[in-house]
Design a protein around this nucleic acid. Sequence first.
DNA 1: CTGTATCCGACGCGATACTG
DNA 2: CAGTATCGCGTCGGATACAG
Lengths: 129, 129
Amino acid sequence: MTHITSSDVDLIRTGCPIAPVVDIVFSRWTTPILWQLNAHGRQRFNDLRDLVDGITAKVLTQRLRQLERDGLVSRTMHAEIPPRVEYEITDLGRSLAPVFAALVTWSNRHLVDVTQARRSYDGSGKPLP
Amino acid sequence: MTHITSSDVDLIRTGCPIAPVVDIVFSRWTTPILWQLNAHGRQRFNDLRDLVDGITAKVLTQRLRQLERDGLVSRTMHAEIPPRVEYEITDLGRSLAPVFAALVTWSNRHLVDVTQARRSYDGSGKPLP
DNA sequence: CTGTATCCGACGCGATACTG
DNA sequence: CAGTATCGCGTCGGATACAG
């Protein structure tokens, strides 16, 4: 007799198994924040703000809170005057490196294809999204 | 003498080199749509709508237009009554397979760590995002 | 320096009704 | 069957001002 395991059921039922991780890693601003923390190491709040290009203090705070809650970033508060707070990517955050590497590889190989596809589409009278 | 190439400058200047591809691949609904088209092959509009769980016709149309423009999905219109339209993932879309595979791997290994980090954070009196 | 509070405009998305 | 049109709400993010 054949057995249907719970993981089999998951394979059948699951809409998109990577949906949860996409929400965690690719919600807005999280990718550039993690990228900069990974590239430049531990950073103070305002320095990180400068590194992440167009982000405002409010949104940076919101995103850092979420990343801290998810265990991807750590926050260290130094009781000094003026106050100093440092953010650092965690081991769990660094474990995303293969994912980011795969994206870099794909970008180098195929981003130009997307650009070309867009030109071709826009120049062919089809309805623009 | 040392030379500074344009790619060196890019490495210094670039905020986050994967930001463009993240916008293309991980904007809302695109991941589940591509996943289902990759898993179940060519699909008619309403069948795809049923596969993608909670999506409405309007939003599915918008996302499919964008994916078609980016060259990740192809649209085939059959002049019949009733009309039949089929969507299929392209070779360019399939070239994302290593990216999705990396996400599956990370999800299997580390999604539980995120869940645990959230429980720990929520149970420690820190400000909730 | 490191945030927080408030206001507000833009956008995304769902619901519904309608068309070729 | 495969969309499109319209409406309305909710959320997100930007700007600004303020606080510890």
